[in-house]
Amino acid sequence: MSNFLQTLRPRLKSFGESMYLLARNKLSLLALIVLVLLVLSAVFANVIIPYPQDIADASHIENKLQPPSAEHWMGTDELGRDIFSRVVYGARVSLRSALGAVGLSLLIGVPLGAIAGSFGGWVDNVIMRLTDVFLSFPPLLLAIAMVAVLGSSLNNAVLAISLSWWPWYTRLIRGQAISVKERKFVQAAETIGTSKLKIIFRHIMPNCISPVIVQASMDIGGVILTVASLSFLGLGAQLPTPEWGLMISMGRTYFPDKWWYCIFPGVAIFITVLCFNLIGDAIREILDPKTRKK
């Protein structure tokens, strides 16, 4: 799912300039505002939601599957829990797992990419063939196989996604590292006899990390969708965790009569992923000097 965002490599100018350009585009600005709200509600979920006990500690089955009302803005689920509370709390679950998956991928992918790019030769060859192997797996299938080995849980799903995601970062940073390696300060460090590893981690990696960070932030939308897909299949979050994909999976048996159960978590996924993608797209455009010329 990621190659859509991967193909064009961003080139970061100054952060301030980017923010300015981002804000200039109304659509992106709107997306940014929604996203900030989402992050805030995820962080302060405990304070915001009207029925905090409905996340895990309560059930009111006598009140099951009620349509949206003043008390329950998004209705109630099959155990009488407030869907609004669960959807809002779900933002926290989704963002946390997406950040986890992307972070873990960076942790694997970045050092490997830096090493491959700096060393070159057979080291580069081995690492790049390894990334090719992982890239050629169908991502969802690889994740499913990993979850089958590790057991279903949200953390294992995150781990499984990272395993299919890291090669993208390795490729990206390798390209950066190859060009950075030729720069004067690296060569200077080499001539004064600094160890190779120190050069990689002290000099090369910090100088090619920024485009990867930008890329990673653009990938979050895609990762959220993948997490939701795995949970929808029962391979991710476990009940009663209010994960959006899992909620849709539970809600679909009540669809379409109790439409609210299935619709609201779906809308939440859509809006979140859309905002991330809109912003990612805008960032890429800003960073790409060619498309900016006009």
Binding site: G221, L225, S229, R252, C262, F270, L274, L278
Partner: peptide, 25 residues
Amino acid sequence: DHISRFFSIGAVSLPTFWVALFFQL
């Protein structure tokens, strides 16, 4: 451009399993 951009980004942001249920309905 904005509309088409919104449409095409929207299209990649939708959970397919969710869309499928709606189409059937």
